[in-house]
Amino acid sequence: MKIFIERIQKTIEREFSGKVKDLLKSVDINPNNVLVVRNNELITEEDDVKNSDSVKILSVISGG
């Protein structure tokens, strides 16, 4: 699966099929800090993603 992590502006690849919340856990990201988008559609932590999907993890934190 291709995973674009916006906060570090990097795309990583890893084998994964399962729930979004478990995907976030595997990359050590707190779900409160991000939104997850698949094919330009917002999905929730309880949605399933497949290994063939490409997802974006967008940081919700802004300002400073």
Binding site: E6, V34, L35, L42, L58, S59, I61
Partner: peptide
């Protein structure tokens, strides 16, 4: 919440960057 605001912006297709201040 910050997450709710971000979701609203995304769903309304506002063209704003989700970028953080470099000094944060």
């Amino acid at each position: 919440s910050e997450k709710e605001v971000a979701a609203y912006v995304l769903l309304k297709s506002f063209e704003v960057g989700f970028i953080e201040c470099p000094y944060m």
